[in-house]
């Protein structure tokens, strides 16, 4: 047991309190952000991603999110590891909501705590960009006159 313990890869900060979760419950942005705060940090940058009503001229009624949950959690964990390698940050929290979401409801929260704000801003932007590219979660946009699963980050043009 002792040997196994010693062979664990050492991370820079043994007190990291990263988390990544998927839930069907409404997201409380402030509460999620507070969970990443360590004593040596001076800034948290929080992304509150929510359901947009208008995409160009098309009006969305509501969204439905679906995930390949076990793989999505693995990919979120990998993302956080990669973020720690790239940026001077302390803690990262990512929570994504699934199911039906109404206009204005929060679908994803990413909170990054860092000693200095610049790294937190950069890491947060990088994390949402990569999440939209790699984490197996899909959104269905439901309109008054139909619905479509969005494939990839770009909006479907029709």
């Amino acid at each position: 047991m002792q040997e196994e313990e010693n062979q664990k890869p050492k991370t820079k900060n043994q007190n990291r309190t990263d988390f990544f979760e998927i839930t069907s419950e409404p997201l409380k942005v402030g509460a999620i952000a507070r969970r990443v705060v360590p004593a040596n940090c001076g800034a948290i940058v929080t992304l509150d991603g929510f359901v947009r009503q208008w995409t160009k001229e098309r009006e969305t009624e509501y969204l439905v999110y679906e995930a390949y949950e076990p793989m999505a959690l693995k990919e979120m964990e990998k993302l956080i590891e990669r973020a720690h390698e790239r940026f001077e940050i302390e803690n990262v929290g990512i929570v994504h909501r699934l199911g039906r979401l109404e206009i204005g409801e929060t679908s994803v929260v990413i909170a990054v705590a860092a000693p200095h704000r610049r790294a937190a801003f950069e890491a947060c932007e990088w994390l949402i960009k990569e999440l939209k590219r790699t984490v197996p979660i899909w959104k269905k946009e439901v309109y008054r006159d139909g619905e479509v699963w969005i494939e990839g980050d770009s909006q479907i043009k029709n």
């Binding site: 991603g49 999110y65 995930a67 390949y68 793989m71 999505a72 994504h96 679908s107 994803v108 949402i128 999440l131 939209k132 590219r133 790699t134 984490v135 197996p136 979660i137 899909w138 959104k139 699963w149 969005i150 494939e151 990839g152 980050d153």
Partner: peptide, 10 residues
């Protein structure tokens, strides 16, 4: 195995 389209979370 799993088959899916390009992801669109966020």
């Amino acid at each position: 195995l799993a088959v899916f389209t390009a992801v669109s979370g966020g």
